[in-house]
C-alpha cells in the first residue's frame, strides 16, 4: 500500500465550497529513462484518479466529484487539488489506478451541518 496524504475538512457548512487535496507516494516512472546500467526503466505510472462522494445512508458507488487522467508529465508522488460543494454528510472515496495492476482506494468522511 502506497502512503497517501488526504486533506479533506472534517466538518463543513451546507453549500460551502471545500478544497480536497490528495497526494500519493508513487515513482511515476515515465518509461523514457535508463538506469545507471543503461537498461531502459519500464513505465510505471498512475494513469487515473477518481473521487466519488457517497452520501451517508446511501449505497452504490456515489456521485462523481472529480476525475483525472494522468500522463508521464505528472511529477512523482502525484498531488491533486480540486473543489466541491458540501451538501450532505458522507464519504469521499478516492481511487488511484495505474500500470502493473496498481490500484488503491482511500476514504475520507465529512460531516455537513
Amino acid at each position: 500500500m502506497a502512503h497517501t496524504i488526504l486533506t479533506v475538512p472534517a466538518v463543513a457548512k451546507s453549500g460551502e465550497i471545500i478544497e480536497l487535496r490528495a497526494l500519493i507516494q508513487h515513482p511515476m516512472e515515465t518509461g523514457y529513462r535508463r538506469s545507471s546500467e543503461g537498461v531502459m526503466l519500464p513505465r510505471d505510472l498512475i494513469r487515473s484518479f477518481t473521487c466519488r462522494f457517497l452520501e451517508r445512508g446511501k449505497s452504490g458507488e456515489g456521485e462523481l466529484v472529480f476525475s483525472a487522467t494522468l500522463h508521464a508529465a505528472i511529477s512523482a508522488n502525484p498531488f491533486l487539488s480540486f473543489h466541491t460543494t458540501a451538501y450532505a454528510s458522507g464519504t469521499f472515496v478516492l481511487t488511484w489506478s495505474g500500470d502493473n495492476g496498481f490500484t488503491q482506494t482511500e476514504r475520507a468522511h465529512i460531516a455537513v451541518r
Binding site: 456521485e63 491533486l80 473543489h83 466541491t84
Partner: peptide
C-alpha cells in the same frame, strides 16, 4: 457540484 473550477497539481 465542483463549485469552483480551480485545479492544481505538479508536473514535469
Amino acid at each position: 457540484r465542483t463549485g469552483r473550477a480551480h485545479v492544481s497539481t505538479r508536473i514535469r
